[in-house]
Amino acid sequence: MQTERKKLIHWGMVRISESHFILAATDRGLCYLQFHESDAEPPVHWGHKQFPEHSWVEDKEDVLQPYLVQIEEYLRGLRTEFTLPLDLRGTEFQQGVWRALNEIPHGMTHSYSEIAQALNKPSAVRAVGTAIGANPILIVVPCHRVVGKNGALTGYRGGLVNKEKLLELEEFRTGKASGGPRM
């Protein structure tokens, strides 16, 4: 009789380039990345909703290491694309929005209405905003690249200060600015 392997979510609270994060990964890929100081919902509660068959185990070094490396490279200006496997769970609409976010080029921004139009749902701007707000993997699924129609910075689960820093970091790396704050 073969025993079923227990499904785990490896998670940790880590400091990367002056910022604190909570990140988590399943055996399929990164499933959660949030700024720690602005995380309103405990990740275990979120995880029980999204991954009810998984158990949580704290693990900062082994399973999470490849994710930590790429996130740190991005925050230090050494990486513009992620090659991390992801384990994103959401509705079909949310998944579509998150795929659209991954199509926004590094150093560029799109408006909520542009994302809705890309999905062929131009009247779904608010629903797009809600799906973006539910993005469990900040930075890697680049919701920070979405701004208001007039270019203004709008809500960000990681906080507007962090959104601004991420956008400035990308401008710095693409040569559009003479410099930008390091996170």
Rank of each mutant, 00 (worst) to 15 (best):
R89Q: 14
V69H: 09
Q34D: 04
L64N: 06
E72C: 02
L84I: 12
F35T: 01
P52F: 07
Q70N: 01
R89G: 03
L33Q: 05
I71F: 01
E58N: 10
Q65L: 12
L33A: 05
E41T: 13
H45T: 14
P52W: 04
L75W: 04
P42Q: 08
I71D: 02
E81R: 15
V63W: 08
L64D: 04
H48V: 06
Q95P: 02
V97Y: 08
L88H: 05
K49L: 08
F35Q: 11
L78W: 10
F93Q: 09
E72D: 15
I71A: 03
G90Y: 00
D39K: 05
L64I: 09
F93G: 09
V97I: 07
P42I: 00
L75C: 07
P43D: 03
G47C: 00
G90I: 06
Q95D: 11
L88P: 02
E41C: 04
L33C: 07
Q65W: 12
P42E: 11
R76E: 14
V44K: 12
R89P: 01
L75V: 04
G90R: 03
D59W: 02
L86H: 11
L88W: 04
E58Q: 14
F35G: 06
L68A: 03
E73R: 13
D39R: 11
L86I: 10
C31M: 07
P43E: 04
L30M: 04
Y32E: 05
C31Y: 02
K49C: 00
T83I: 00
P42L: 03
S55G: 09
V57W: 00
Q50E: 11
F93L: 06
K60W: 04
G47S: 05
L30P: 07
Q34L: 00
F35A: 12
G77H: 07
Y67W: 03
G96M: 10
P85F: 10
S55C: 09
E92L: 12
P85L: 09
G77R: 05
D87M: 02
E37S: 14
G90V: 10
L30S: 06
I71H: 02
I71L: 12
E41P: 00
S38V: 03
P42R: 08
H45S: 11
F82L: 07
E81Q: 15
G47Y: 02
F35S: 11
I71E: 05
D62S: 13
P52S: 04
K60V: 10
T83C: 05
E73N: 13
D62G: 13
K60G: 07
D62A: 11
Q34W: 07
W56H: 04
W46Y: 15
C31K: 09
Y67E: 00
G77K: 05
F93R: 09
G77F: 06
T91C: 03
H48S: 08
E61S: 11
G77D: 02
I71S: 01
F82S: 07
L86T: 11
P43W: 10
E41L: 12
E41G: 01
D59P: 03
V44D: 09
H45E: 13
W56F: 15
Q50K: 13
Y67G: 03
F82T: 10
D87A: 02
S38M: 08
V57I: 15
Q94L: 01
E72T: 02
T83G: 15
H45Q: 12
H45C: 00
H54T: 05
L88V: 14
L64W: 03
V63A: 10
L68P: 06
D39M: 15
K60C: 09
L68C: 12
T83W: 07
W46E: 01
